[in-house]
Computed example of a mutant assay.
Amino acid sequence: MGAFISGFLMDKIGRRRAVQLSFAPYLVGWLMIATADDVINICIGRAITGIAVGMGATCYVYVAEITRPDDRSLMLMFGPSFVSLGILIIYSLGYIVHWKISAMFSFACCVVGCLLLQFIPETPVWLSKKGQDKKANEAMIWFRGVNTESNISHDSHVKHSSDSFFEKFMKNHSWKPLLIMVIFFILQVGSGIYEVVYYAVDFIEKSGSSVKPHVVSISLALIRLITGIIGSWAIQQYDRRIMVIISASGMGFSMFLAGLYEFYFEELDIKERPYDTTPQIFLILNIAFSTLGVHQLPWSLTGELFPLCIRGVMNGIIPSFGYIAIFSMVKIYPLLLDSFNMFGCMWLFTGFSVLTVFFGKYILPETRGKSLQEIESMFVKEQFEMSNSQTVSKAKAEN
């Protein structure tokens, strides 16, 4: 719900204001949790902070519109890495101090974040779209320096149109990115990323590990942070298609081997299984490979693929779809486990990972090093070529 709301807000009030507004439910939610005396208030507070999490999708649009094409990949990939850092900090605090102190720490971070946003400008793209060219140029200078280009770059190129939203949506550069992102999110969720993370403690406990659950959570959060930083660096150096192929291949291979182990030794008692740490190693490898591309890219691409005319709305709809898909799969997973056993679920995740490899090779558009306008032009060019070929065919038929 939060992502859907922010999608409309970021077009109306601006990207920066929409991000600032997302702190409001964070503040209310964390304060409720910190002062809660019963489970009901904790759940209400968590639900409210959940709205804020969805509204945070605006950050990807903001970052995409203020960064240079050469730096945008790295900056966008830092988003999931900072999420991993936040998770690690909260897990660690929860292990050391009372959970109410952790909630107050989160509340304080939100206050600081909201105030700091007051000192940075709106994106040049949005300002230019609203006809505020002077402010757009000033914002461009603020972000990129006086000695760089002070005019609006290709990323800020605006084509004013009187078309309705439906007419804009029916163009190639609108509906094709939507279809690509929907497929990408389905493959991402189906590959088991979130199931592995959410049920990691249960999985490791069932594998016979004596490690405490808190230590498992903190360790996995640390692994996600480290590999996420490596992935952020790699995505800046190599094409996104390559990173998706490597990421999905590693996920599929590790999950296939984990399923193979479970298949052969399922009947044995956990203490009697040989190499009993094997499933845990494959779990760690799966999480590590996921952070090299498949985990981060669907979220970062939402800020890049859509044209300016519908970027705000689509960046509300697509993350909303992503969150619904994640929620549904995480809730369905126990039923899948009962129906297909552990090895069956692992091989199901392997199948989705294989499909993701083909998706990365043949469908995913390459956006590395391209301006937002160049990305939009990739889809517009396809539409122009298709329209041109239809015109030529019609002319030949008439002759």
Rank of each mutant, 00 (worst) to 15 (best):
A234R: 08
R241S: 12
P274K: 02
S232R: 06
T277F: 14
A248D: 09
Q280I: 15
S247F: 07
E266V: 06
I246K: 02
F253Y: 06
F282Y: 11
Y261A: 09
K271L: 10
F256W: 08
I246V: 14
I242M: 12
S249Q: 04
I235C: 13
G259H: 02
L257P: 00
L257I: 08
Q237P: 00
L283Q: 07
I230C: 15
I230E: 03
T278W: 12
S232V: 06
S254C: 04
E262V: 01
I242W: 08
Y238Q: 09
S247Q: 07
E267H: 13
A248N: 12
F253A: 13
E267R: 10
D269K: 09
D276I: 07
M255I: 04
Y261D: 07
A248K: 11
I230S: 13
I230Y: 04
L260C: 01
T277N: 09
A248M: 12
I246E: 04
E266F: 13
V244T: 15
F282L: 12
G259W: 01
S249V: 01
M243H: 07
F263K: 15
S232G: 12
F253M: 13
Y261N: 06
L283W: 09
L260R: 03
F263W: 13
G252W: 05
E262L: 07
G231K: 05
P274M: 02
F253N: 00
M255G: 00
D269I: 02
I235A: 14
I281R: 12
Q236H: 10
V244L: 15
M255P: 01
L268S: 09
A258Y: 10
I281Q: 10
G252R: 04
F265W: 15
T278K: 05
R240H: 10
P279M: 08
S247W: 09
E266M: 10
S247I: 04
I281L: 15
Q280E: 11
A258R: 09
F263Q: 14
L257G: 00
S249N: 01
S232K: 05
I242Y: 13
R241Q: 13
M255F: 03
D269H: 10
M251N: 02
E262W: 10
R273L: 00
T278R: 07
G252N: 05
F256K: 00
L268A: 10
R240V: 04
P279W: 08
M251S: 03
F265G: 04
R273F: 02
S249E: 02
Q236R: 11
I270S: 15
G259E: 01
L257F: 12
S232L: 05
F253D: 02
T278M: 13
T277P: 00
G259P: 02
S249G: 03
S232A: 15
